[in-house]
Design a protein around this nucleic acid. Structure first.
Length: 844
RNA sequence: GCCCUCGUGGUGAAAUGGUAGACACAAAGGACUUAAAAUCCUUGCCCGUAUGGGAGUGACAGUUCGAGUCUGUCCGAGGGCACCA
């Protein structure tokens, strides 16, 4: 028997599909399906995470094609970003050349997977043709007021004189200079995403095909909180400080006020050395939420006090503190240490009064020695609020505050405007210019794109666009006066916030997208990508869709992604030598006495399985795996071993087993062609079973349970193997096998098509149609009923479907083991569930 | 710190509240072979030759005729936190 020649068959079908452009005969223009996987960053080599992402997407795309849909399945490159600049610095390469080279290498590798991707629609975000339209969109947004300029903080490296990304800050220091990173204020461009806060939150409910946990993460990210603004009057003067709180019910427990270092009242102290010291300390904490939350809470006591609005003659001190953020709420809070953990820690540190105002149901629980009490309860020590429950007290105090005219109910969102300015070279230039009179205006659209200069000095300190000798000098088209270009580039998240729209009309030169193509293809029916994008990328894309709708009356869609699937990561065991150096899997072999180094035979320590990463060297290269085992085996393994939404562990044994299975199908196909049978006595039983599998696999693919679908394919293979000798005519057998191979096709397309063409006696095969099961055959299927006594399994009954309780009882009582167990026992009742169980409840 | 997810054999896992461990990996034993590879078969907690019985899904409670699945508390692992993409 011949073995399958994997590499020839891979090549043969890949070139066949590329000529046919993956269009199958039965597509219906009225049924569209837009299947999209998150496009890759062109790092130069595909990794197993890509293989998994695109293997899942390809199953969906091919399955939909086979069901008659007109499928859009494009691919492109998220090709701006920091790594190109780093590579440029390290290897003295031009970022553009580096990126181009990487794209062509990765495209070659992706093609080896045999994906049903339409390469005619390929786009790359660093192409002028792409970012030109992005600049247009930016200007459209600007003209509609969706772009604003304001000050915000960045991580500043004082030695490199440049802004650092969070990942470039390690333990509070710059990754290259090792300088202590400072928080520095810069003017930056923002997208006014917070304008849509309410909408972005509410519309989550319309996303029925999104995972609940992603929606929950977005909900928390947007962070709507209902609270109250209160003006506290400064002692002695007619000035007020506005605070925001979600716990106005605890106002009688307020013992201090805390404001952000950036609060306007701090202006008073900007010359005071003690305050400047304090401010410097604050600025050395990173800009991430995590860093701020974990930083030790410190405070600066001002000489100011406010009057308590409800307690006569009580004054409250004002502190400046690092745990208050200027861009959330009003940048000021009242501290109620008894009922807020952060306030508690602060008060303990500075010896401030801790006054309980909420009594828990179980009064013994109150213990304010170690932590605040943040739970529910009854209000105490609070005059007119005493005795009320927390929610009722909130309502009452808000009314009182409004009555006194010192504040009002207020809804605040955690979601901040999206800062899109980056002080970097390898990104889309922001199409704005600065005039001499201080005005900032957009570049005239006729002058787009604002191109990146190619001759840059990547090793210069600071932003290469800013230090470039001529690039930023320009003229304002309207007046001809000299002007200076914006030297910041756009966050690369902007590039990926609309690429899915560009795919609808990727070649359109005059505008970002053609409205008719947009209307036909959008929204994306199935979007597939990593869970790590659950918040930002998806939220930004949702914002972009709304912003585009806001600017273009012909667009009515708000949500870009109808269905979302988030896949897990690809993991591998980690290996270390005796010195603790990380060792890559291909330098390790498994011997009878444990893991050994292939190079010097030394002992290797096996660590836990973790997401594949360069730093731990636990990477397996897809291309070499494809070379050894073939594209189908690699795709098959990565889909078979775990549910797609969970992490999967790569194993060489696993992919080699997948390869064996490919051989097994190939062998079965040859046995089928060589068998000789024309009787049909055994066909009925076989067809009943097979028919059941058609329904099961269809359902499992629809539900994304691809690993289970694959388990069923293993079972079907055994079913065919076990029936080779049975009395089923060749014609029938080949007919079933054709249907079977079509169900295999989305998972292992090269193998499936090769087997199909062999069954037909042709060289190629392209008439694809997903098999349709028969509902009436399904009803003839036998079922297994469980016989229980007091909920414990005691026997099984094989029976026709839909047997009545009476008949099942008769059958059950015939079984020896049941007779034995029911002897001399009193049956209290039976529980019967059709086609499932009969449970005898007996007296003990 | 805040938020989210996940805990089932040696391993990856399966199971509309109804047979726990399908399917696969690894292991052990066997068949075929001069031998190996390949392939195929069997086994897999405890008691029992076996029919059978018992324990068992991170821990402890609860709801139910019946809980891996639902509820609560706890323990453990992983992920996200706005300039990585």
């Amino acid at each position: 028997m011949d073995k399958i020649d994997i590499s020839n068959i891979d090549k043969k079908w890949q070139s066949f599909w590329s000529e046919k452009k993956n269009k199958f005969k039965n597509t219906d223009k009225n049924k569209k399906f837009y299947c999209l996987e998150m496009f890759p960053y062109p790092s130069g080599k595909i990794h197993m995470g890509h293989v998994r992402n695109y293997a899942i997407g390809d199953v969906v795309a091919r399955y939909k094609m086979m069901n008659g849909f007109n499928v859009l399945h494009p691919m492109g490159w998220d090709s701006f970003g920091l790594p190109a600049e780093n590579a440029a610095r390290e290897n003295n390469l031009n970022p553009k050349e580096w990126t181009k080279k990487n794209i062509s290498a990765m495209k070659h590798q992706l093609k080896l997977l045999g994906l049903s991707v339409d390469w005619d629609r390929e786009i790359s975000t660093c192409d002028e043709e792409y970012y030109k339209h992005q600049q247009e969109l930016f200007i459209d947004f600007y003209n509609k007021g969706l772009v604003v300029r304001k000050e915000t903080y960045v991580n500043w490296d004082p030695i490199e004189k440049s802004v650092l990304a969070n990942e470039q800050v390690i333990d509070g220091r710059g990754w290259r200079s090792n300088a202590i990173v400072e928080r520095k204020k810069l003017y930056q461009w923002f997208f006014n995403i917070s304008k849509f806060s309410e909408e972005l939150l509410e519309d989550l409910d319309t996303l029925k095909e999104w995972p609940e946990r992603v929606k929950l993460m977005q909900k928390n990210w947007i962070g709507k909180s209902v609270g109250c603004e209160i003006n506290f009057k400064l002692s002695g003067v007619e000035k007020f400080i506005k605070v925001f709180t979600t716990r106005p019910d605890t106002i009688f427990g307020a013992t201090f006020l805390a404001v952000s270092v950036d609060h306007p009242i701090c202006e008073n102290y900007k010359k005071l050395p003690k305050f400047l010291d304090f401010k410097k300390k604050c600025s050395q904490v990173g800009t991430t939420e995590e860093a701020i939350a974990n930083a030790e809470k410190i405070g600066f006591k001002t000489d100011l006090e406010v009057e308590h609005p409800f307690i006569k003659d009580k004054t409250i001190p004002i502190y400046v503190s690092n745990f208050i953020l200027m861009d959330y709420g009003t940048g000021a809070i009242f501290g109620c240490p008894a009922h807020d953990q952060r306030d508690f820690e602060f008060a303990t540190k500075y010896n401030l009064e801790i006054k309980p105002v909420v009594k828990p149901k179980d009064a013994n629980l109150i213990n304010l020695k170690n932590e605040a009490y943040t739970g529910d309860g009854t209000i105490i020590n609070s005059e007119f609020l005493n005795g009320l429950k927390v929610p009722d007290a909130k309502e009452k105090i808000v009314k009182e505050i409004a009555k006194k005219n010192i504040g009002k109910k207020k809804i605040t969102f955690r979601l901040k405007d999206w800062g899109v300015s980056r002080q970097r070279y390898w990104g889309c230039p922001i199409p704005m210019i600065y005039l001499k009179n201080g005005e900032v205006v957009p570049v005239d659209k006729s002058e787009l794109p604002v191109k990146l200069p190619e001759n840059i000095d990547v090793n210069s300190k600071g932003n290469p666009l800013d230090t470039h000798p001529t690039w930023k000098k320009t003229k304002y088209k309207k007046t001809g006066e000299e002007a200076i270009r914006e030297t910041d580039t756009l966050d690369t998240f902007v590039d990926s916030s609309w690429y899915f729209i560009r795919f609808c009309s990727p070649k359109n030169k005059s505008k970002a997208f053609d409205e008719d193509s947009f209307k036909y293809w959008m929204p994306v029916d199935q979007y597939i990508g990593g869970i790590e994008h659950a918040i930002l990328h998806l939220l930004y894309s949702r914002f972009f869709m709304r912003a585009i709708k806001y600017c273009n009356k012909r667009i009515s869609i708000k949500e870009p992604f109808k269905g979302l699937f988030t896949q897990g990561m690809v993991c591998h065991e980690t290996y270390q030598d005796e010195k603790g150096k990380w060792i890559s899997p291909d330098q390790v072999e498994n011997t009878q006495i444990g893991m050994k180094s292939k190079i010097d035979g030394s002992k290797i320590k096996v660590g836990p399985s973790e997401a594949m990463s360069k730093s731990k060297k636990n990477i397996v290269d897809p291309e070499s795996m494809i070379k050894i085992y073939g594209a189908d085996a690699v795709r098959w393994f990565i889909l078979s071993d775990s549910p797609p939404e969970r992490d999967v562990q790569w194993s060489t044994a696993g992919v080699s087993a997948s390869h064996k299975f490919i051989q097994r199908i190939w062998a079965l196909n040859q046995k089928t062609l060589n068998r000789n049978q024309n009787k049909n006595d055994d066909e009925k039983k076989f067809s009943l079973k097979f028919n059941e599998y058609v329904f099961k696999i269809t359902d499992l693919i629809e539900k994304f349970q691809l690993n289970v679908a694959i388990a069923k394919i293993y079972e079907i293979t055994s079913l065919f193997e076990n029936n080779l000798e049975k009395k089923i005519s060749n014609e029938k057998f080949i007919n079933y096998q054709t249907q079977f191979l079509k169900m295999l096709l989305p998972f292992a397309p090269h193998l499936s098509c090769e087997c199909l063409s062999k069954l037909e006696g042709k060289n190629f095969y392209s008439n694809m149609q997903w098999p349709k099961g028969s509902k009436s055959l399904l009803d003839k299927q036998e079922v297994t009923l469980v016989v229980q006594i007091n909920g414990k399994k005691r026997a099984l009954i094989n029976a026709k479907k839909d047997l009545s309780e009476k008949d099942v009882l008769i059958e059950a009582k015939k079984i020896d083991n049941i007779k034995k167990n029911l002897k001399d026992k009193r049956i209290i009742k039976n529980i019967f569930v059709k086609n499932k169980i009969i449970n005898f409840i007996i007296a003990k």
